[in-house]
Computed example of a mutant assay.
Amino acid sequence: MWIAEETVRELDRPGSRDELARVATRAARAASGEPIEILWDGMWIRRAEGISFPDPELFQTAQPRWDRWCHMATKYVCDADDYWFHVYKPKLGDVIVDIGAGRGEDVFAFSQKVGSEGHVWAIEAHPTNYRVLNRFCELNGLANVQTLNVACVDVPARLHIETLPVWESNFVRSGDATPTSFPVEGVTFDSLAAEMGLDHIDFLKMNIEGAERQALPGCRNAMMRTAHVCIAAHDFRAGRGEGEDFRTLGFVREFLTDCGFELITRDEDPRYYVPYHVHGVRRDASGVDDLGS
């Protein structure tokens, strides 16, 4: 561990966390050579490049990737440009919907790109990730972001979200609770869009680990008011033997085509997940503002 377990056990409690923060900051700076800071503000936080990153598992990390920890804000912006803005080019004042917002890694770039005149709707199902997402937005002044703690589905239901060792892989499912799952309310995005008065969406991103098969049918009406989309399919997880429910690429392509989008994929990209990012541009995008609800 990068901080001795006995030190964490001794100091990670009320009255001692400021000392643990000092110890951790010294260790992080010595290891990274960068002015990273560790602090406690309701949860453990890493601060680098002037940006605060809430991190509940901070002291559970065996060996941090210091290059990532010290340049995470830069990585967030570069990743958004690469993955989500490959076709869609954001403008000030745009409205973005992020279904599967995680801990704010894409919300950070979305918020910057649309500016104070724009708006980002960030939807995250897992309660821990949602708590981190809210804190991330609060700490970094992302005032143009509104968060919702629900799962997007085709039929309203009470569901569960599984907690995996790599939190980015958490997924929503039906069935019984397990020791590693949390209950979550499943709603259609169409109902959320109506409730929020979303009459136009410039870009809708969805990255929900196979649940896109259930979520997309509940977005159909809103899709007719959306100019650009990028849906992450997850066939590569099926290919790893994690279950055929993750094989969604064909469904995503058919659904978006039926909703009036021209599709673009990067089939030759060597990264195992990028060819499964399905970008869509509405064929009648010039008139999308005039589409009815």
Rank of each mutant, 00 (worst) to 15 (best):
N134I: 07
D284H: 02
D12F: 13
Y276N: 00
G50T: 02
R103N: 11
T128R: 14
A151Q: 00
D284L: 09
A211N: 05
R213N: 00
N140I: 01
D199E: 06
G15Q: 08
P54S: 13
A285G: 07
S181F: 07
H277K: 01
T147S: 14
R103Q: 14
P270H: 03
L139G: 14
V77P: 04
A222G: 09
G141Y: 05
Q146A: 10
V172N: 02
G241T: 02
Q63H: 14
E34D: 01
E268T: 13
V77C: 09
D290S: 15
R220V: 12
L291Y: 08
K89Y: 05
Q146T: 15
L20G: 01
E57K: 15
V166E: 01
H234M: 11
I123F: 11
E117D: 12
T178D: 02
D269K: 00
A73L: 07
L263D: 08
S293T: 13
I3V: 13
E262C: 07
C152Y: 01
I161Q: 00
A28G: 14
M224H: 15
V166T: 11
H277S: 04
Y130T: 00
E185L: 08
V281W: 00
F203E: 05
T188R: 10
G93T: 07
V23A: 05
L39D: 11
Y76N: 14
A101R: 02
E49C: 07
H200V: 03
H86Y: 15
